[in-house]
Design a protein around this nucleic acid. Sequence first.
DNA 1: TCTCTGATATCATCTATAAGACTCCGATCA
DNA 2: TGATCGGAGTCTTATAGATGATATCAGAGA
Lengths: 258, 258
Amino acid sequence: MPAKTENKNAAASGRRREASPEGPAYARLAGRIKQMISSGEYQPGAKIPSEAAISKEYGLSPMTVRQAVGQLVDQGLLRRVHGSGTYVCGPDWTRASFSLEGLLELLHDKNGISIKILRAGIVKAKARAAAALEIREGSPIISLMRLVYHEGRPFLLNKASLRFDPRSPIVESELEVSSLSGLFTGKGNSFIKKALLLVEPCLLSPEEAGFLEGDRESAAFKINYTFYGYSDSPVGSGWFLALRKAVTLSTRIGVWDD
Amino acid sequence: MPAKTENKNAAASGRRREASPEGPAYARLAGRIKQMISSGEYQPGAKIPSEAAISKEYGLSPMTVRQAVGQLVDQGLLRRVHGSGTYVCGPDWTRASFSLEGLLELLHDKNGISIKILRAGIVKAKARAAAALEIREGSPIISLMRLVYHEGRPFLLNKASLRFDPRSPIVESELEVSSLSGLFTGKGNSFIKKALLLVEPCLLSPEEAGFLEGDRESAAFKINYTFYGYSDSPVGSGWFLALRKAVTLSTRIGVWDD
DNA sequence: TCTCTGATATCATCTATAAGACTCCGATCA
DNA sequence: TGATCGGAGTCTTATAGATGATATCAGAGA
């Protein structure tokens, strides 16, 4: 059916985008809608025009409009109600999500990072470590205590407990000092399938405060973690201790135009 | 061009989906790919088949495949490299993002929540509040201290500083006890455009510990916030104090099959 | 041996079309 | 007056195809 093809070609050529000045069409449309929400033109709770209407107004295909709206829905700015319409959302605190950006930024800076091993050895698992690693209490585990420096200053204290399994490749790899930052950069951990993280506030013990050069009475973040291999069993568990100033746990909700 | 239309109709009818057993096709495909990553069939760093190949293999349209892959890319499981292919990602700690779920769940339970106002009044802004609200030091502000109970037990201490502006509707609304949970459910705050949140670890003062019925020396989360109106100026600022057990800041990274 | 260049594979974006599914509202009927 | 039904509007999912942009790699030329 050549006629059809020719027709399509012609149509496409007719409105071909040439080095679109501000990126893809869907992104530009999303920006425009966002702007209208930001300016208050579309207020929270209000219904925005139907996708078909927007499509017609801007001369874009419905799928492109759909993508733009979908992006804003993902961002939590809009809410689609099937069969009814698309509505503007107010800021929703339930969408607040914090990331460890600040901390991880430092760890990415490989040159500035150095790691000192304070303790290392094979010990018998105590109740807590045994539970986390899903092994019997008293089984041998590898226990590590490490201090992470950035540009000569300590900023992270790490305690790690690892399954002692000579067949598993994690043992060798984990014992290398480089593996810790490797864990954060996401490279070279093909044996880790998933991980669980839990952040808690905590009080530094005098010893911990000494390592981190914090005040004796300072509060800190404790980042507990457990990671799992492809067998779905835990291979390592432990925590990081970071002073408040080392970690920024912040987020923004609602419409920020930037 | 009727021939074209008829042709398309026929094609569409030919493979019409009838009450797809496990939801939309793109979701099913995404699940299947995820499964293959989870099982180790596609290992981190490996290249998955091209979208065109997948499209052919499963008999789906390229757009459907694209949607499925895009979903996994958004989840951080896959990584698209333009002109090269799509690759499997290992767990990436930089994607770790924590939410205030646990806390907000409690606040959604409107019946169980009660709020006690400990202090309320108009005071002169001190340096910190003045900076946060972007007003001059010494200007009058509304200062509130509130204690939030869930099922009779205190679990959140809140200090709020609000701009004193008789023209702004936030004053009346904020002073109502219901407004606090309203803030979290995202309903009835059409005057809030955006907000900034910052979580810190902190030490409870004896007074604060008393309010929250915590141990004297316990660590807690301090959730600082500032929210802004549609004029982009801050209308309120303050913090929440929550004992560790009241807040769960946890997250999972990597492939969890659930 | 090194560098540049072009072909190719692949992703990225967009267009066009169509029918199913859901919700709301109003009209109809008892 | 109240309940029910149907249609309009809307989102949802899907199909097929075209074209632009870019990374990779092999091969030509210096």
